[in-house]
Amino acid sequence: MQLGTLALLLTQTANVLSQTALLFFLGVGLTLIFGIMRVVNFAHGTIYMLGAYIGYSLARVTGSFWVALIVAPIIVGAVGVAFEAGILRRLYGRDGSAFLMVTFGLALILGDVVQIGWGASALRVAVPDLLSGVVLLLGEPFPDYRLFLAGFGVVMAIAIWQVLERTRFGLLIRATSQNPEMARALGTDVQLIRSGVFGVGCGLAALGGVLASPLVTASLGMAASMIIDAFVIVIIGGMGSFVGSLIGAFLVAFVQVFGNFYLPELAIAFIYLIMLLVLIVRPGGLLGKED
């Protein structure tokens, strides 16, 4: 009995970690984009969905999930760069509503592209053979794939953090985020940074989409529910804050996993309640600056 409870707690905690990883990829892209460009990307959920669908096709064509995992984010990232260079670039200096409209428009366009390209039915991606087994955590079976997700999330979080902190690209991103005029005056190609960050943000969302596709079937409803999760994560963590998106993803994952298990009736409402409380106490989010 005692051991059973402990085992349950352990598998649930592992579930939280793997869910955190998925949500983190979604949230960190959105928060990076906001930090650099002050753009609230309403297309982020659709980008995530596009990643899942492209990943599905790549996995079928090449027969390898791993190829899909690498190539799909690159393709989606390229779409993001093209959108930034073609449209967003003309709008810096305009107010936020302009970005709302174009990203909303992009969400509509991509949503329909997915529907035309893949049809309206939900698609299932197989878990890669290597990870299709289970491990025993104190006697409770736990899928390998979810364990892999948790580990991969930790590795990627450290990698992104190191890129932001240690590399020149990361330095320029942080500089542009804090003061774009000054960064430009000091000779940074701010335009290039913006394109790059938008592309990377979209690519990370697509990575999340591909990783999620073996767990949740890829479907058209994905976009609308994921965008709101992404918003909640970055709002709780603070828009533009990398560590904030990590904390936000963890909190949301925690409430989703434990809430759905113990209080399924209240889990959704509870997430929004947390978001409200955080915003009331710290209007800019846990680690954000108040705007």
Partner: peptide, 28 residues
């Protein structure tokens, strides 16, 4: 009363949070 404690994007996000809270409540 709650939302006007903030301005700008934070205000927008607070209004969104309220609406989504109502959305969740109607579901349950």
């Amino acid at each position: 009363w709650v939302c006007t404690r903030s301005t700008g994007v934070s205000f927008s996000m607070l209004t969104l949070a309220f609406a989504q809270l109502l959305y969740a409540i109607t579901f349950r």
